[in-house]
């Protein structure tokens, strides 16, 4: 009996020591990294509760960045509640008011627009658009402004979608935004957005072609989107009788996406072109 007790005690002790060891290891790992890095890493992995408490702890050392993290984690924490949304909104508003032009302020302004666009139960698209535009005009070089340009395009085209006749007009209104595009990613995203959204809404093919051709000059991180862009360009060019352009983009597609479900169809089309010669 006593032996059993001793065995159980030894077992419990070893378990406790193993646990303590693991805890110590975790602590050491956390301490060796910059304080907010772990919190952002957790936010990136969608572990919003962990990130939230980490941001809250670090508010004294780096208040602005930690507050931004806190506000964004609140947007992700589940369940999603109006209370969390209001709290996040108030933190972001304070951050934007405190300094609207530093990195944190710009991020806060971008997310204030995102809240209006996406996080509210009923979106307020005009309000979101206004904030994106002001961000773009104030600081076009910020990565958030570069994203904002494509957001404005999406909102405007979406609002025009019920009246397809107004799509051309909307597209013309979006053109001045091109002057604000500074980075290759910004350009790619804006023109891909306008081109693909217009194409889906059966907009003017020539306009679609213009945007997608500009986008296709940049490199794509999403291969699926790149393949869609190349295929759409080639198909529009083919429909418009621009065989040279169609051939160029069909060939690029076949070379870049040999395993795509459309490759065989395109190869057949290229054979047709050769046969017509």
């Amino acid at each position: 009996m006593n032996r059993t007790l001793l065995f159980l005690l030894a077992l419990a002790a070893s378990l406790l020591s193993a646990n303590a060891q693991t805890q110590a290891q975790t602590q050491a790992q956390t301490q060796s990294a910059p304080p907010l890095r772990e919190a952002w890493k957790n936010a990136s992995l969608f572990l919003f509760n962990d990130a939230f408490s980490q941001f809250q702890k670090e508010k004294t050392t780096n208040p602005r960045e930690a507050s931004l993290g806190e506000a964004l984690s609140l947007l992700g924490i589940q369940p999603k509640t109006q209370k969390n949304l209001a709290r996040s909104l108030s933190i972001l508003t304070a951050l934007a008011a405190e300094n609207p032009s530093d990195e944190i302020g710009l991020a806060a302004r971008f997310h204030l627009a995102r809240i209006d666009e996406l996080h509210r139960t009923e979106p307020n698209l005009p309000a979101a658009r206004k904030q994106y535009l002001s961000l773009l005009e104030d600081a076009p070089a910020s990565p958030f402004s570069q994203i904002a340009a494509s957001r404005i395009a999406l909102i405007d085209l979406h609002l025009s979608a019920p009246d397809p006749a107004s799509l051309d007009e909307t597209e013309a209104r979006l053109r001045p935004l091109e002057n604000f595009l500074r980075t290759p990613e910004g350009k790619r995203e804006f023109h891909t957005m306008v081109g693909l959204v217009l194409n889906t809404r059966l907009g003017n093919p020539t306009t679609v072609l213009r945007h997608l051709l500009i986008a296709s000059k940049e490199s794509f991180s999403q291969k699926k989107i790149e393949s869609d862009v190349l295929f759409t360009i080639a198909e529009i060019a083919d429909t418009q009788g621009d065989t040279a352009l169609a051939k160029q983009y069909y060939s690029r597609f076949v070379a870049d996406f040999p395993q795509d479900i459309r490759t065989f169809l395109i190869k057949k089309r290229l054979e047709d072109f050769s046969a017509k010669k």
Binding site: W40, A43, S44, L68, L72
Partner: peptide, 11 residues
């Protein structure tokens, strides 16, 4: 993704 994007930019 909104939060992820912001986090990745900060990282």
């Amino acid at each position: 993704f909104d939060v992820k994007l912001a986090a990745d930019i900060q990282l």
